[in-house]
């Protein structure tokens, strides 16, 4: 049984690391996003292997079902950069510098620390095979409303603020949007044009400022 688990762990680890490498190296951003999803899946599988079922499901629900979708959406909305010919990585010495930093961090800092540190792993239960007492979903819920209530509420506030902030940031000015009127609306408009309501605005009011035009691509090039 131990061998089976080791094999499964090895496969999952290979999936996670391989997919992550693909995420940062492939040229096509869409492919990178898809590899990212594969990586998230691997992490979810690892959670299952670690017997954190709820977290595995949440991983799939949030990362695969929401965040990766969000990323793909953002790629679609900024689609002109997905071409294969565009250079995706920084060039020259900067690339080598970052690669060196990452590799050194891994080889010098993380691996020796992890290996050399003696972890205080508790002894497994006396007769091997008896299920370990594991905290489940109920304990998780209880922890949120007793022990970590403040943090829970802060997280809720954070999510709300993030939601509002995202909307505010990504909100497009109404005046910039184009919308095709329905027949009923156009009919209504024609009716109003035929019988204009009395104008209340004073005559001396200045004309509204012209709408800000988005910066064209040519200006960006300069």
């Amino acid at each position: 049984m131990a061998t089976v688990i080791q094999i499964i762990f090895g496969l999952i680890a290979a999936l996670i690391v391989g997919a992550a490498v693909m995420v940062v190296t492939v040229r096509n951003v869409i492919h990178a996003a898809l590899w990212l999803i594969a990586c998230f899946f691997g992490v979810g599988a690892l959670y299952l292997l670690l017997e954190a079922e709820f977290l595995a499901v949440v991983q799939v629900l949030v990362y695969v079902g929401a965040i990766s979708i969000l990323i793909l959406f953002a790629i679609m909305l900024t689609r002109q950069v997905t071409g294969e010919g565009v250079r995706q990585l920084v060039g020259g010495w900067r690339l080598w510098l970052t690669a060196a930093i990452s590799a050194l961090l891994f080889a010098v800092a993380i691996v020796p620390t992890v290996i050399s540190h003696s972890w205080n792993v508790p002894a497994p239960p006396a007769p091997p095979g008896t299920p370990e007492p594991l905290a489940g979903v109920a304990e998780l819920g209880r922890a949120f409303v007793y022990e970590f209530l403040l943090q829970f509420q802060v997280a809720g506030v954070l999510l709300t603020v993030a939601l509002i902030g995202a909307i505010v940031i990504a909100f497009e000015e109404r005046a910039r949007r184009r919308r095709v009127l329905t027949l009923a609306e156009e009919h209504e408009l024609r009716k109003r044009l035929a019988h204009p309501p009395p104008v209340e605005a004073p005559a001396g009011e200045p004309a509204p400022a012209p709408r800000a035009t988005p910066i064209s691509e040519g200006e960006v090039q300069q």
Binding site: A20, V24, V43, Q88, V90, I101, I110
Partner: peptide, 13 residues
């Protein structure tokens, strides 16, 4: 995974 993520965050344009 962390180091690969770091590399990606630093090197992607």
């Amino acid at each position: 995974l962390f180091c690969i993520g770091l590399f990606g965050a630093l090197s992607r344009r």
